[in-house]
Write a protein that binds this DNA or RNA. Structure first.
Lengths: 253, 253
DNA sequence: AAGTCGTGTTGCATTCCTTGCAACAGTCAT
DNA sequence: ATGACTGTTGCAAGGAATGCAACACGACTT
């Protein structure tokens, strides 16, 4: 749309391949050296481009600063909320969104079930970290040593007969979750309540949040709930895509 | 230098603060909405800007991709080499550059001493990980659990009486190194050889490489070598700055 | 339902900004 | 010294970006 800007921005991917000098940039842009010079200067003033000691140009530090600032200002909850609502409208059950912070897993959003049931969860409240599906998803993504360090530090309360009993079992469960890309809690916290969950990933592939659908088995059986898994995963993936700023199909055209 | 590009690039830091709609962007740029629209469109085509579901604009995924590709294409050794040579010319001793990879620490560059001595090191060769100054620097930067996991897995050969004896001592040494920002190896590998080293950091502050100066004490005493510390640190910092694309003083003007 | 505000979007004429050229200034090798 | 190579600057001409005004669309209010 804007020729000048278009040309200037085309320099960035070019430099991402590696440092280049003025002539190379001008050639690959198909413009005169002086034109390339002025574009590079403008990019340089904004810190997007850095001139190294051999006079060649590379991408500059500002780019990293921008990228970092962008992720920090991103609010998963804001982006995820409409998706959670849509999911709730499709299946009717309680939908949770949670994040991992300081050795705790916290609910940061919740859409209530449309069935007349209550669940003991509250936004801002730490979840039962050893059994909840969202906790498993978030912790499964940690590097192995951190995962292990955390697992041995935790208490393993026996909420029910199906609660995770100890660190060994927990680590095994996390490995499974990491492998399959989704998690469940089948009566591990409250005997009659089941959950299925899936991870939300950031642009670097790391898990930044986790969502789950919960329902008491007086409403649906565990098997029926598990049938929702594809839908849950698709929702989580949609959130991931939007969160990481990728438009589903447009990106590569 | 180029008004159009200048305006377009000014949008990026603006969006880094958080999502904004067309009107806000136009206002803060001091241009007509239609102008802002066309600039945003161009940025969008290049993927630097992403349009979220509520029509507001944010920074896009391409920015992250570019930043990542840029760091991958960066070669520490290439950037560091002239600095290593300069350091060698100033002090005359052997200078090493090393990186951490797969639970090993490898020398990736070396400038030979100008004194007639030999050192048993070779580019590409794993270093004595429990005693070398460069190893301490690289491992000290790991997250605590990984550091501990690695420390207990290592063997602690007694090269000399001053070699690190066990994991406990090693972890204590790493904590000290992490704290002070530099490291030494005083006869821990070979009785008569001392080293001082300092870390090279990337744009995110993490240690990406480590450099050291080594000399046998038949040439200089440990104290004399330690007197070089400020020089070594300054060199490492210079490499860090150049590697992370920050121009020393210009950046904040 | 009509009306109104608030968005984002498009065509178009004017004008200013970008462009390529050619000449210049360095640096390095021959 | 001389040549070839880089990066750099002034200038005129043309084209591209700009702001305007009008339009389209949806969300609210009345």
């Amino acid at each position: 749309m804007s020729q000048t800007v278009d040309r200037a921005l085309s320099i960035l991917p070019l430099l991402a391949e590696g440092p280049a000098d003025l002539g190379q940039v001008a050639d690959r842009l198909g413009v005169h050296k002086s034109t390339a010079l002025r574009l590079l200067r403008t990019l340089h003033e904004h810190g997007l481009v850095h001139r190294q000691s051999d006079q060649r140009y590379r991408l500059g530090a500002r780019l990293f600063a921008l990228a970092q600032q962008a992720v920090e200002s991103l609010d998963v909850r804001e982006i995820a909320h409409p998706h959670l609502v849509a999911l709730n409208e499709k299946c009717g059950h309680t939908v949770h969104l949670a994040v991992h912070e300081e050795n705790e897993v916290l609910y940061i959003d919740k859409v209530e079930s449309r069935y007349p049931v209550r669940m003991y969860s509250r936004i801002g409240k730490p979840v039962a970290i050893t059994v909840a599906a969202v906790a498993k998803l978030l912790l499964a993504d940690l590097p192995e040593p951190e995962r292990r360090a955390l697992a041995v530090k935790l208490d393993y309360p026996r909420y029910t007969a199906r609660s995770t009993p100890d660190a060994t079992a927990f680590l095994a469960e996390l490995a499974k979750v990491r492998e399959q890309g989704w998690a469940t809690d089948l009566g591990g916290h409250e005997e009659s309540i089941n959950c299925v969950g899936a991870p939300v990933r950031g642009v670097d592939g790391r898990v930044v949040a986790a969502m789950s659908v919960s329902a008491p088995n007086v409403v649906v059986t565990a098997d029926e709930l598990l049938a929702l898994l594809p839908l849950v995963r698709r929702t989580a993936d949609a959130i991931s895509r939007e969160y990481s700023g990728q438009t589903p199909a447009k990106e590569t055209e």
